[in-house]
Computed example of a mutant assay.
Amino acid sequence: MKKKCIILLVLILLPCQIIGCAEEISSIDPEYVRTYVPQTAGALPEFIAAFSVPEMPEQADTYRIVYPAVTESFVIETARKFGITGTVTEGTDGFSVVDEQTGSTLEVFTSGAIWYNPEPYREIHFSENAALPSEKEAVGIAVQFLEERDLLPSENKQYAKAGTGGTIQGKPGHILVSFRYTIGEHPVEGPGFRFLVRVGNNGEPGEVFIYCPEVERRKSVLLLPVEKAFGELQKGNGSWTTYNEKTIILEEVGLRYYLQPVNETQEYVLPVYVFQGYGLNDDSTQGNEAQAIVNAVDIGNSR
């Protein structure tokens, strides 16, 4: 049974609330999900498997995203939580508000994602000789900032992780605090995975980006064997992030759920395999980190 949400904010931001649903997917449009994991353009590198296949389940659940109704009144109320007052402007991807006094901006996408950019941006994020908190302190600042605005359900706090978010003249400019989360039993990956707070000079909260859609379970599907999925990657049926190295050594593989960018319409959330490794330099030494993502279900790849 679905939970009724009295406050629209909870409907939009409650991370990964999974609603039980007896209805099954009768079919998945193959033309829609064919590009579910975008195929990277350009030259196809040589992928070499250097990983041991971990124990994987034979099947995994699929989900449908429940998109919220983002209204102008909701955007105004959300802007007030960040101290922003101004005229709401509607665009192709949602709404935006620019503060009349400071110039700080808030964007609320039709997907429910929230993006806050405070001003003065550079002074907060890239101040010379910035007085930064420790990573542990930065996590506490980020958690408090979100909790005071009812933007961080308790499920996400345990996944907080901090690290250098940017540098100026070789020194850390601010601390990036990200909040990982799961859908069902598996972590989320992809360009739509963005739930972060940047903590800058004197511990001041900076940019905030929040996206963790509400989903409802649809049905379980059989997973491709990892070896077969890797074969699809070698044919170019997948997405990869490299630095133009011609050879990629992949050392780890895990099961994840894939989120597309927040400004794109994504109906289903399906499982993917995420491979991690590194590229080889021209002199065969270890190069930059590399990642590749392949569909974990058979959706009719055809390259």
Rank of each mutant, 00 (worst) to 15 (best):
I6S: 08
A22G: 02
I25D: 13
E31C: 05
E31W: 03
R34E: 08
T40F: 07
L44G: 04
L44E: 05
L44D: 05
E46W: 01
F47K: 09
F47I: 11
I48A: 10
A49I: 00
V66W: 03
S73I: 04
I76C: 01
F82R: 13
I84Q: 09
G91E: 13
V98C: 04
E100Q: 11
T102A: 05
S111Y: 01
H125W: 08
F126H: 06
S127K: 12
S127R: 15
L132Y: 11
L132Q: 09
E137Q: 15
Q144I: 00
L146E: 14
E155Y: 00
N156Y: 04
Y159N: 06
A162N: 10
I168D: 06
Q169F: 08
G173H: 04
H186D: 13
P187A: 13
V188L: 07
F193L: 13
R198H: 15
N202T: 00
F209E: 15
Y211E: 02
E216G: 01
A229L: 04
L233W: 04
S239I: 04
E251I: 01
G254Y: 00
Q260K: 03
P271W: 05
Y273N: 11
F275M: 11
G279F: 05
G279P: 13
T285I: 03
T285E: 13
N295G: 07
A296E: 07
D298E: 13
R303V: 09
